[in-house]
């Protein structure tokens, strides 16, 4: 599969479908045993390029607790840029920027253990952003968060995406594919679908792909097939309500 720069790609699949393995390929944390993986034109198998690749592609992992190195928020964000050997002025600037983007600026001097799960995950994202990457890979980064934490994280990502960031989001929550341009479905280590998210939503092949369709998607498809919704309506509550209300002239 190919991912163009500037797109938002979702990768979905059950536990054990190979999602995480795929994610780690993008950062050269794992390299293919067969085949090749090129990131920004660089072969991940080449040990001399791996460090360069990790500068361009940052990752956020599932468990926020296990990716925080430092005890103070701003020191945590600085960890990545420090590894790049930047000047202290440049590091401070990046830290400030990353904390602002993720809405954690006021927490800069707080101890990391006192943050909530959602805040910790945004801190992990801030740490990744401070590397000034061109692409962010989220490996099930929302799966341990509550609805509020998930919403906050997705909001930050949406903003970054608008500014041109490439986002690859590994998830098992199908509702989350709605934010993405493209979706890949993995099933037992194989790519079962890769294409526009819209095409996946329209298809009735969810069951065939071995994933469960969210009830709202089902309702949306049924309403469309009965001609009650516009073809172009997206399966979100707001879009569906607006469309239906307009049609019935309420």
């Amino acid at each position: 599969m190919d991912v163009e720069e500037g797109r938002w790609v979702s990768v979905v699949g059950d536990n054990g479908s190979g999602k995480s393995t795929l994610a780690k390929q993008l950062n050269a944390l794992l390299v293919p045993t067969r085949g090749v993986c090129f990131v920004m034109g660089k072969d991940t198998k080449d040990p001399s390029l791996q460090w360069e690749i990790r500068k361009d592609v940052s990752m956020v992992f599932q468990n926020p607790e296990n990716q925080i190195v430092a005890s103070v928020v701003e020191e945590e964000v600085a960890f990545g840029p420090e590894n790049l050997g930047l000047t202290s002025v440049e590091i401070e600037e990046r830290v400030r920027w990353a904390l602002k983007v993720t809405g954690l600026f006021e927490f800069a001097h707080r101890p990391t253990y006192a943050l909530s799960g959602g805040q910790k995950q945004r801190l992990a994202l801030a740490g990744a952003l401070a590397m000034k990457p061109r692409c962010i890979v989220l490996d099930e980064a929302t799966s341990m968060l509550d609805p509020e934490g998930r919403k906050d994280l997705v909001e930050v990502l949406t903003r970054l995406h608008h500014e041109g960031m490439t986002v690859v989001m590994i998830t098992h929550r199908l509702e989350e594919i709605l934010f993405s341009d493209l979706t890949a479905v993995l099933s037992r280590g194989k790519l079962a679908f890769y294409g526009e998210t819209k095409d996946l939503l329209d298809s009735t092949t969810f069951a065939l792909l071995g994933i469960k369709e969210p009830p709202l998607f089902k309702l949306w498809r049924n309403l469309k097939s009965r001609g009650l919704l516009e073809e172009s309506t997206y399966p979100t509550v707001r879009n569906m309500v607006e469309d239906l209300v307009e049609r019935l002239c309420l």
Partner: peptide, 13 residues
């Protein structure tokens, strides 16, 4: 649940 949100919004409309 989203379906419930949807039902609620329709009812409000």
């Amino acid at each position: 649940p989203e379906v419930l949100e949807f039902a609620h919004s329709l009812r409000n409309a």
